[in-house]
Design a protein around this nucleic acid. Structure first.
Ligand SMILES: [Zn+2]
Ligand SMILES: [Zn+2]
Ligand SMILES: [Zn+2]
Ligand SMILES: [Zn+2]
Lengths: 164, 164
DNA sequence: AATGCAATGTTATATTGTAACATTCATAAC
DNA sequence: GTTATGAATGTTACAATATAACATTGCATT
């Protein structure tokens, strides 16, 4: 199972409502541009894995991706998925949610940023947030202890607005 | 293997230098008090697992603990270790380092606090730090998005002072 | 065509973590 | 002291996550 069943089906294109198809397409286009810029190759396989990640629009587990991919791709094996995930993470297109062993598409792959997430323990929704002040404070606190920061992850567990 | 070989052997009681035995004993005494206070039972098994965690004085993997424990404890199985780890985490005596699937003794188990860590990618040393301002900022950022925070973890990867 | 390298295929295995049920142990009630 | 109770541990089996190692394919350069 995925990390959550949340919103496996999305509302269809009402006014102001999340248009899932459009969202996925935007993510894929953005990914293509990002890879172009970085001189990285978004092969059909990698692109398809990224699309599958966005399909659920929520953190997805590697073996769920594998099961889905295997239905359309004969040779799919764990290495297939993990290689694609490694590539996508290196390219900044996907984040790993460590506390869940799950992977989430990044909607800000156009600029460098750190991984900060709000994880709802009730509905399993996850949202990425950016707060430069927070990132800077973490950096500063680390430097004050003589530590040089390469990467930081923040995972906040709790209840989203609609689950409280 | 453990997360790192770092400091498997510690310097012995020089002036101002980390005295490992004393440090472990302090942690165990503190743990006993904490369990007393919380009305939780620090059984010999749980106490021994906590001691093994402190022995390395660095994050340790569950199956490394298991291998060590098995040498002195006949019936040791995965469940043995994971149950002890669950208990110790609930009691606030141990933190899980999500990015490493590893467990670290907490030296501040006497008061409630969140898990903030600096992880050196070179020597594998990990230090826990506390910064109320940081915890508060995370809380505030989450609340601003209508999110109710139960728990937060911060893992900062980089180079410690001596590894730069 | 020959070479080299990146990507993928393929098989096997390592690592991490749970489920389920039996047994033992400590405590309190009788 | 015996018995009832629930917590803790023993025991076996298995699920879930991830990597190693080597073969093959595809593609670009020479
Ligand atoms: Zn992102
Ligand atoms: Zn929710
Ligand atoms: Zn702590
Ligand atoms: Zn270091």
């Amino acid at each position: 199972m995925g990390v959550g069943m949340a919103k496996a089906t999305k509302k269809k294109t009402a006014a102001g409502v999340h248009d899932h198809r459009r969202c996925v397409n935007r993510a894929l286009s953005s990914a293509e541009r990002a890879c172009e810029t970085q001189g990285k190759r978004l092969t059909p396989l990698r692109r398809r894995v990224l699309e599958l990640i966005w399909d659920g629009h929520a953190p997805v587990k590697a073996y769920d991706l594998l099961r889905t991919l295997a239905q359309e791709h004969a040779g799919a094996a764990p290495a297939t998925i993990y290689r694609a995930l490694d590539f996508l993470q290196d390219a900044g297109l996907v984040h790993r949610i460590n506390s869940q062993n799950a992977y989430l598409g990044c909607n800000a792959s156009d600029h460098p940023h750190v991984g900060h997430f709000l994880l709802c323990t009730s509905c399993s929704n996850v949202v990425e947030f950016e707060n430069d002040g927070l990132a800077a404070l973490i950096d500063e606190q680390a430097r004050a202890q003589g530590f040089h920061v390469d990467r930081q992850t923040v995972e906040v567990m709790g209840l989203c607005r609609s689950c409280q």
